[in-house]
Design a protein around this nucleic acid. Structure first.
Length: 973
RNA sequence: GCCGGUGUGGCGAAAUGGCAGACGCACAGGACUUAAAAUCCUGGGACCGUAAAAAGUCGUGUGAGUUCGAGUCUCACCACCGGCACCA
């Protein structure tokens, strides 16, 4: 292809316009109150030059891409798909009159730069900056209309100081269940026993006493400690010692969301459960809001479903089972609390299972509920090889603890467990049921304990079958032929009558209601909602991330506690290191910087860093006000860009939506970034820092672009096409156009080099629709001899085709144009880029045959073309303007030219072609006047010769006439 | 296993319940050219026909249904893609 003649001089046109846009700052978006340069095309379009901008700005439109992680490899042709879609929309919305915010930045913290640093000693900042340079060059070569003045990187101290600031807001807030929102921690009410009765016991008094007398009130200190613990345990950012995912190869802990199939999402390394002290964010407090508010936003069903599944809400009941009293006199009674979604099956509970890590197990050992010998009548398959219950439990707990979760899930083909020797009492019928421990019950979900109903739960059924435990039917399937064993759906309760309560004969929903009410009345349980969602593990043992604005101190009794740094201490910069590995003792790399860690007054800095997701949780807010030194975003600015606004009555009539108007990105962030960002946004909303409860009003996932071989693009397959290749060979405009022409945005679709050439040919046709062939030949000859730096000017040699005249359009030409306007406009509104492009092609195919080409028609066409193919459209627009100055005076800048409005009157035909069917089969197409009434249509249809062949001599039973559409004649026989 | 999505020519794909295959790729024929490239014009679902047409029949994963009429709506099934997966 390289040897063939260029379709048009894109190699000169594209750099030329990118430079003009850059110098003119064409796509700079203006904030309320910002001064606008006199000659900026946006100011001219909206007549805002020299006026106070605040009140005058047109409605906003915020169009956002998921900002990339700048890897060293650069972009391949799959990357620009989403960027192209948003850019087309941004340019379209500008033409409609919106104030469009379309920014780009870098999600730049991350593991690859750090791993490279460990290997080579090169500072991650240096690697990151190099990668950003590469990415930026490539993205800029694609001609997107980003406002680069708002560019940001999450690794900039001016950025992450506000990430740390938001962390302080989380740290200094708690979730008040009464108001159902986050509130400052200062408003936390202490329980009575922790209330300060005596000012002398206040922390301040305590500190004074300590300093002056080297002595303190022990009681006051205890109270002070307990108050602090109480408060710290309720913060939205809190420290917790609990089993977390530890990845040895990555040298860090990971969040639930970052662990896939028992392996790290990054790198696919093994992960193990390990109890560690970690920072957590209380996302579970927002489970209900995160779920409910999905109904208020326009996301794809599949994406919403993914979030719903991840949040995993289930309604059910908690039920208390008394453990059968121990033989030790005077020992306290114990209760096992279980969660079930099927309280209606309570009569079928024939045993109980505790997770191996359940805290009650140790307590039961201590209280003697667990017997020292196997109870009489214990079956052989229940005891295994263990001498006594204690040994059995200890052995099983040990086996379970050394299993990784990979083994626990992947190898769990067969159920395992151990009998504790103890029994519980089923509250509905007083029956004694054995208590087991088994790792198919997870400590982290519900109460960590279950009542097992083997008749109506697959897992319980498997377990009961293996260990020979009783299986009792309590639900009758609606269809009597269905086997009740393992029947899990709704049916009718049977065998469900006890001394105080009966639900026999009730349908499942009623049975649930009745038994739950009874449990509540007896104090034996209550209606409960459970979520799969866990709190967000928020610390990482890494170097290249945001340090926590937290220090650790020791109380007078030596007890460590944490404290937030003041806002004035932000940003907390990471220390300079030469070695980026974790320490030999397994501490994070930051711990190597002793001078940094140990503060003069004796406290120590937190050495964990935040996860990569922190920076991306709020970057869309920083874009609004990227340079603001005083706030993470200015209040008026936030309200303008994120708040919903009444549509202003002007032409055109744009409407704004709350939050980001359009967010486009890959589906890989469904339960990571998109859930975390919603969570932070809701906290900021509760605290009054943002105007909307949801950040992203409309979200579209672009489908993946596969390699030409229909496989996902990857280095190992060797099918990766870097963006630079098509940009060199056919230009950015052709690349952009093909990205959108391949098919619907959301679909997965394969790359096609031939296809790119096809749209490139189309652009050549557009070019030839406008330019004079002779002048182009002269240009080409001049180009071969000209010096490189003068070539850009040679474009001026190219003249417009002499058929382009400043004359009125013929009716047929107007019709072609307006059909195109209608289709492109409607398709852009529906994000159907591929069909919009086909409409542009239809227009060009027709216009190529015109003997005279009216300037006004071509100008409107260029406005339609401009969002897709901005460089070529600008070049042709400029030529039209130069050669037809009078007619273009009110259109100085193509990106801000008014989007044409389609006139339905121009599309009305005088004659129409109407298909005629006989018995539903097409037999003829007849020409009729457009205003023909039903009777005339019917008569014309019957008069058709072809139709006559099928209806002659037959009885007409019925005639269906659809005005302007079709006639269908139904005949007998 | 559960949830979501998608099945239409050789290929990417279009079609408010109303002419299936717009637009493009690939292909074939022609024009221009010494020739090629580029460009322009023409053709095209399959089958059956025919010198060539016309006419006809069948066609949107499979099978049923609703309807004057179904790619589109309903039910059942099959295949592929994505997500979740001992979550009680």
């Amino acid at each position: 292809m390289a040897s063939s003649r260029r379709q048009y001089p894109f190699h000169l046109i594209e750099p030329k316009w990118q430079q003009i846009w850059d110098i003119q700052q064409t796509f700079r978006a203006f904030n309320p109150g910002e001064e606008m340069p006199e000659n900026h095309p946006f100011a001219r379009r909206h007549k805002l030059a020299g006026k106070p901008a605040a009140a005058q700005l047109p409605p906003k439109c915020y169009i956002l891409d998921m900002f990339p992680y700048p890897s060293g490899v650069g972009l391949h042709v799959g990357h620009p798909e989403g960027y192209t879609a948003t850019d087309i929309l941004a340019r379209y919305k500008r033409a409609l009159g919106f104030n469009v915010l379309h920014p780009m930045g870098w999600d730049a913290f991350g593991l690859p730069a750090e791993q490279y640093a460990v290997k080579t000693g090169q500072h991650p900042r240096q690697t990151t900056e190099q990668n950003i340079t590469t990415f930026k060059r490539q993205i800029q070569s694609l001609g997107f209309s980003y406002d680069w003045s708002r560019e940001l990187a999450t690794t900039d101290p001016d950025y992450f100081r506000w990430t740390q600031w938001i962390f302080l807001k989380l740290y200094n807030s708690w979730f008040n269940p009464e108001t159902n929102k986050a509130e400052p921690i200062s408003r936390l009410k202490f329980p009575k026993e922790l209330d300060l009765e005596d000012i002398a016991k206040s922390p301040e008094a305590l500190e004074l006493a300590k300093l002056e007398k080297k002595d303190f009130d022990v009681e006051a200190l205890k109270l002070w400690n307990r108050r602090r613990e109480y408060r710290d345990s309720r913060r939205l950012a809190y420290v917790s010692e609990q089993p977390v995912w530890w990845c040895e190869q990555l040298g860090t802990v990971l969040a639930n969301e970052e662990v896939v199939d028992g392996k790290s999402e990054v790198g696919g390394f093994a992960v193990v459960r390990k109890p560690m002290r970690q920072w957590m964010l209380r996302i579970t407090a927002y489970a209900e809001k995160l779920l409910a508010d999905l109904d208020t936003i326009e996301w794809s069903t599949s994406l919403k479903e993914m979030q719903r599944n991840w949040i995993g809400r289930s309604e059910g009941a908690e039920v208390n089972f008394e453990v059968e009293k121990s033989l030790v006199p005077g020992s306290p009674s114990e209760t096992i609390r279980v969660f079930t979604t099927r309280p209606d099956t309570l009569f079928g509970a024939t045993y109980m299972v505790l997770a191996p890590e359940h805290a009650l197990i140790d307590q039961m050992k201590r209280s003697g509920v667990i017997p020292t010998h196997w109870p009489a009548g214990t079956r052989n398959e229940w005891t295994g090889n263990a001498e006594n219950p204690n040994d059995a439990i200890t052995a099983y707990q040990w086996t379970a603890s050394i299993k990784s979760d990979l083994e626990r899930t992947e190898l769990a083909k067969e159920k395992t467990g151990a009998f504790t020797g103890a029994y519980a009492i089923n509250p509905v019928n007083g029956q004694k049921i054995p208590i087991w421990i088994a790792d198919y019950v997870l400590a982290s979900y519900g109460t960590g304990a279950i009542m097992a109903v083997p008749a109506h739960d697959t897992r319980d059924f498997e377990f009961a079958t293996k260990f020979n435990l009783p299986i009792v039917q309590v639900v009758q399937p609606p269809d009597p032929r269905t086997d009740w064993q393992g029947f899990m759906d709704d049916g009718t309760s049977v065998n469900s009558t006890g001394p105080e309560i009966s639900i026999t004969g009730l349908a499942t929903p009623e049975a649930k209601k009745k038994i739950t009410a009874w449990l509540e009345a007896k104090g034996l349980g209550k209606k409960t909602v459970n979520y799969k969602l866990r709190d967000w593990l928020f610390s990482r043992q890494r170097y290249w991330g945001e340090p926590f604005p937290i220090v650790w101190k020791k109380g007078p009794d030596g007890h460590p506690y944490h404290e937030a740094l003041p806002e004035s201490a932000l940003p907390v910069l990471p220390p300079e290191l030469t070695d980026y590995k974790p320490t030999a003792t397994g501490e994070p790399p930051l711990a190597r910087a002793k001078d940094w860690v140990n503060l003069p007054e004796g406290s120590q800095r937190e050495t964990n860093t935040m996860p990569q997701w922190a920076g991306s949780c709020w970057y869309y807010l920083r874009f609004l006000d990227a340079k603001n030194p005083n706030a993470f975003v200015g209040k008026d600015t936030e309200q303008y860009w994120m708040g919903s606004q009444e549509p202003k009555s002007q032409t055109p009539d744009p409407k704004s939506t709350p939050g980001v108007d359009l967010y486009v990105g890959g589906t890989e962030h469904a339960v990571l970034h998109l859930l975390y960002a919603r969570f932070w946004h809701k906290v900021l909303y509760d605290l009054g820092y943002v105007s909307t409860p949801e950040p992203f009003f409309k979200l579209v996932n672009q489908g993946m672009v596969l390699g030409e071989d229909n496989q996902k693009m990857s280095k190992s397959r060797g099918n990766v096409i870097p963006v630079d290749v098509p940009v060199q060979e056919v230009g950015t405009d052709a690349l952009r156009l093909f990205e959108m022409f391949m098919g619907p945005l959301e679909m997965v679709k394969p790359w096609s080099t031939r296809g790119v050439e096809g749209v490139y040919r189309f652009l050549g046709r557009v070019w030839r629709l406008f330019v004079d062939e002779k002048s182009e030949t002269e240009f080409e000859q001049a180009e071969t001899t000209a010096e490189t730096q003068r070539r850009g000017e040679l474009l001026n040699l190219i003249k417009l085709d002499s058929a382009i005249k400043d004359v009125a359009a013929t009716p047929a030409q107007s019709k072609t144009l307006h059909a195109c306007i209608k289709k492109v406009t409607e398709d852009l509104d529906g994000l159907r880029f591929n069909t919009a492009i086909s409409a542009l092609m239809v227009f060009v195919n027709d216009a190529m045959t015109w003997e005279t080409k009216p300037v006004s028609v071509l100008r409107d066409f260029l406005i339609l073309l401009q969002p897709f193919v901005p460089h070529l459209a600008e070049e042709l627009w400029a030529k039209l303007s130069i050669q037809n100055p009078t007619s273009n005076i009110q259109h100085p800048s193509l990106p801000y030219a008014n989007w044409p409005k389609f006139d339905p009157a121009l599309l009305i035909e005088s004659e129409m072609e109407i298909p005629v069917q006989v018995n539903g089969k097409l037999r003829d197409v007849i020409k009729v006047p457009a205003d023909a009434d039903n009777a005339a249509l019917e008569a014309a249809a019957k008069a058709s010769e072809k139709v006559q062949q099928f209806i002659a001599g037959k009885a007409i039973k019925k005639v269906i006439v659809v005005p302007k559409k079709l006639v269908n004649i139904i005949v007998a026989g």
